[in-house]
Design a protein around this nucleic acid. Structure first.
Lengths: 237, 237
DNA sequence: GATAATTAGTGTATTTTTCACAACTACTCT
DNA sequence: AGAGTAGTTGTGAAAAATACACTAATTATC
C-alpha cells in the first residue's frame, strides 16, 4: 500500500455538458465562476467526485443540484487528464453530456453557482480551464448520437411540430436539410404520433403537433438505427 | 486547498485492451497476475498513471513496456470508477484500446507481467477486477469503429488477401458477410492496392495479395465514411 | 374584405445502392 | 489424374436516396 502513496495525491471531478434546445438553437447551460481560479469566466457545471460516490452518480448529482431535474439522459463522453489542466493540483475530469427540455428547467436559487444561464453553442467563446475542449468533444459526440438515437425525444417539449424537429436536427448537425425528404424519412419511421392538434396564435398556417411514441422509441433504443437525410442542395447561405 | 484534502485520497490508472488478429480470430493481449489481489487471474495490462504524466502518454507507455511497439493506434474508450472496483482503495481507470499487428509483436522478456499471451476474445471467461466489463466496452467500441474507419490497416500484416480482410470484419462484427458483396464494396473504395503477387505454399488456388493505400487511408480518416455490407443470408450455422 | 406575408404541407421521376444468388478457376496433395 | 480447397467473377430486382417547386392555411395590414 505504501507504494501507492505518491499516486494518491490526485483527485477527479465530473463535468457536465447540459444541452438544451430553444429558439432553433442548440444551447448549453454554463455557470459564471464566483471564485478563483478563472473567477468571472463561464465554465461547465462540475464538481469533485465524493470518495464513496460512483462516477455516474456524481454526474446525476451535479445535474440535479443545478436544475432539480431527475431522470435525464446522461452519457459519459471522455476523460480529460492533462497534467496542467487544473491550477490547484492534478485533477482529471470525466466529461458527461445530458439532454434536458429547457421548458422543464428552473434555475435552482440555492445553487452553488453565482449565475447559471443558457448559451448558444455556436456563440460560445472562451471557457474556464479546458472546458472549451470538453464542450467540443461533447458536441461531436452528440452529432454522432443524433444519427443513432432519437435524440429529440429528450430535447423537445412534449408537443412539437415537424419543423421544430427539423430545426433541432439542423442545429445539431450544423447543416440544412431538405424539408420533404426529412419529413418522408421521419414519418416512415413511425416514431411520431399525430396529436390531431395544431399550433395556436401563430401568424401563418398553423402546423400539426406531434409527440414521440414512447414504445417505438424504446424499440429504437434497443435495436439502434441509422438516420441519414440529405442536405438541402438548392438553398444554402 | 485544505478542502481538497479528502479528495486527494484517490488514484487513477490506465487499462489497455490490446487487440490483434490472427488465425481468423480477434485476440486480446492479457497478463497473468503474479501478485495479490487476483493473483493467478488474467487481467488487462494497465498501470497507475504517474503524477506528471498525461493519460494518453500513460496508455502509450503501458503498451510499449509490454510489446516494445510504438506508433500504434490508441483510442480512449471509457472510464470506470465504481467505488469498490479496486480492493486497495479508490482507483478509477481510464480504458483504452489499441490495435496491433500480431506479427510485429514480441513479448518483452523484462516485462512486469509474469506472463502475457494472446486470447481469443470469444473464449475469454473471467478476468480480474472489472476487466471483463472493460473488455466488453472496448469490443463494442471496436465494432462501432470498424464501420467508420479502415481498421484493418492497423490489424493486418502489410500484405493480405481479400479473404483475410473479410475474416477480420466477420470476427469483429461477429457475423458472416457475403463474399461477393464484400469484395465489390471494398474494391470500390479504392483503398486497396493490388500487389500483383499471390500467396505461396497454400494447398489450393492462391489468392492475390493486397496492401492498403496509405494516402487513401489518410483521406478516409479525415473525412470519415460508413461501411455497411449485408450479411450472407444463405449460409448460417 | 381584399391582399400581402409567412410558414405548412405535399409527390414524383431519376439515380444510386443494396441485395440475393452459383458457376467456374487455379492450385496442391495424394 | 483426380479430389480437395479456397479464389474469383456478374447480374437483375428491389429499395433507398436524391433533387426539386408549387399549393394551402392562417394572420396582419391597408
Amino acid at each position: 500500500m505504501a507504494v501507492f502513496d505518491k499516486f494518491f495525491q490526485s483527485a477527479f471531478s465530473v463535468d457536465n455538458v447540459i444541452f438544451g434546445f430553444d429558439e432553433g438553437d442548440l444551447k448549453v447551460l454554463l455557470i459564471k465562476r464566483g471564485e478563483s481560479p478563472f473567477e468571472g469566466s463561464w465554465a461547465l457545471p462540475g464538481d469533485l467526485v465524493y470518495p464513496t460516490e460512483d462516477l455516474d452518480t456524481a454526474a446525476v448529482r451535479i445535474l440535479e443540484e443545478l436544475t432539480s431535474l431527475k431522470n435525464v439522459y446522461l452519457e459519459q463522453v471522455k476523460t480529460f487528464g492533462g497534467v496542467d489542466r487544473h491550477p490547484l493540483g492534478r485533477v482529471i475530469t470525466i466529461a458527461y453530456y445530458s439532454l434536458v427540455k429547457i421548458s422543464d428547467y428552473k434555475l435552482r436559487p440555492s445553487s452553488f453557482a453565482a449565475k447559471a444561464s443558457w448559451h448558444s453553442v455556436a456563440s460560445i467563446d472562451q471557457l474556464a480551464f479546458d472546458h472549451s475542449e470538453i464542450l467540443t468533444a461533447c458536441v461531436e459526440r452528440l452529432k454522432q448520437s443524433v444519427r443513432q438515437r432519437p435524440v429529440g425525444f429528450q430535447l423537445l417539449p412534449p408537443k412539437f411540430t415537424l419543423t421544430e424537429l427539423q430545426h433541432l436536427y439542423e442545429a445539431i448537425l450544423d447543416t440544412e436539410l431538405d424539408k420533404r425528404n426529412f419529413r418522408k424519412k421521419i414519418l416512415s419511421m413511425n416514431l411520431l404520433v399525430d396529436l390531431d392538434q395544431i399550433q395556436e396564435g401563430v401568424a401563418h398556417r398553423p402546423a400539426k403537433l406531434y409527440k414521440f411514441d414512447t414504445l417505438k422509441y424504446q424499440e429504437f433504443l434497443a435495436k439502434g438505427y441509422v438516420f441519414e437525410v440529405s442536405e438541402s442542395k438548392t438553398k444554402y447561405k
